[in-house]
Design a protein around this nucleic acid. Structure first.
Lengths: 235, 235
DNA sequence: CGCAGAAGCTGATATTTATCAGTTTTTAAA
DNA sequence: TTTAAAAACTGATAAATATCAGCTTCTGCG
């Protein structure tokens, strides 16, 4: 699964989307027996760093950012989870408090599953456990990749990468393959790329001038993915 | 487990050291039945990013850096593993190529365990699997923490943090609790903190002038851990 | 023991990126 | 529809950090 044959997009995505497929019908039924659905509006916080987990979350519809806030304000986005993905399971498994916060970046529908039910299925289904182990191992790849990029790439490269990654997440929203439209604030882009908001704006203007993208307020339309990948300078 | 009551050192260490304790004697015996020990000199590469894993490694003696190399030269260190820890298991579990490289940062003795034996035990021992799941989940905490620090802290703060983390890894080397001596190159410090070598040298000089540490070539003696923690500015 | 290469170190300079102090535009609530 | 707050944007400046070029000191090998 590689983007346009050159950008290793699998290095940027967790793989919790397909985990639930390992469950039998009755196992799945038991997992979701006590679930409760909740709507979250854009910006709503789902859980906060340092709090104690009571269960895990399944994103039915929408997108969620996982982030850490450092010295007051300024959040660093660790990962953007899409519909179908699980979040909040790390803390349950490691028996720690949440290491990061999660908030909706668009209106979302999310199921809460009590941790007891999650743990119960885990003990019941070896296939589920193996699949989870695989997913968690892959996450190491994604996070190590993120560390390397943030430490070693320039601001324009990091922004380009953020846009490529987001484009993939917004792909299925639209019908066509080309000219995918992202709907994301400058602040969230800054949080993903680890640069100041003002510089995100300036860089977007440059990209626009180069014909790589068009933007109208929050909407960013990727016009030339090939040139964007080139901009990212990714091997 | 928190350093001097204020620095959250557990946020900086994987927990694979105690995983093998979950195995019964016969399980352990089977795991290591086909192991082969090998000595690695300081600087020797254990595995390289992009290659295909054939098994996992158990560090019997020594220390190992896990790192990613970006655009020729300049390596970013993701993690420093100590004796007792397992490395190379992510790629086996996720059935991918190694996402990072590993090299000895001091002379080390390392056992290689064929992946078949590892997988076999994994299927045999639910306790082992659960423990591994927990360890991998904790790793998310460590890596998310690293991302946030690299993205949001200043160079002096990052260097201070690198020194604090290393101090903990070198603790058991010496007898006393105080004035722990690190044995690490400026280049590796630069790789850990994500800053240029030259600046590592300049910052170390500052720390020295402030009485925080003393250094004699590669040997760095932490004199005032409290002031170092303050320097790191860590909540 | 001598020597070559690596690592450590220094100062000067360039570059990148953040910060600041606004203005304009958009958005959503009254 | 008005309007207040939030987000987007701009230019100027400051700060942080990297880069470069050269020098010195170690270190391990022959």
């Amino acid at each position: 699964m590689s983007l346009s044959g050159i950008f290793p997009i699998d290095r940027w995505n967790f793989t919790t989307q397909s985990i639930l497929n390992t469950l039998s019908e009755e196992e799945y039924a038991e997992l979701v027996a006590n679930q409760s659905d909740q709507k979250y509006l854009k910006g709503d916080v789902i859980f906060r760093e340092g709090s104690v987990p009571a269960g895990i979350f399944l994103i039915r519809r929408g997108k969620v950012k996982k982030y850490k806030v450092d010295n007051l304000a300024k959040e660093q986005i660790i990962y953007v989870a899409n519909h179908g993905e699980l979040i909040g399971y790390h803390a349950v498994l490691s028996e720690e408090r949440y290491p990061d916060s999660a908030a909706a970046i668009e209106d979302s529908l999310i199921s809460f599953i009590p941790k007891e039910d999650f743990i119960s299925i885990l003990h019941r289904s070896p296939a589920f456990t193996q699949r989870l182990l695989k997913a968690l191992s892959h996450e190491f790849t994604v996070l190590a990749n993120t560390i390397s990029v943030i430490a070693q790439r320039t601001a324009p490269e990091r922004l380009a990468i953020a846009l490529i990654v987001l484009r993939e997440k917004y792909k299925d929203e639209e019908s066509g393959e080309k000219d995918i439209v992202l709907n994301v604030s400058r602040m969230d882009l800054a949080g993903m790329a680890g640069i100041a908001q003002e510089n995100v704006i300036r860089l977007l203007k440059e990209f626009k001038a180069e014909g790589i993208l068009e933007s109208d307020g929050r909407k960013i339309r990727i016009m030339d993915i090939k040139r964007l990948i080139k901009k990212s300078n990714y091997r």
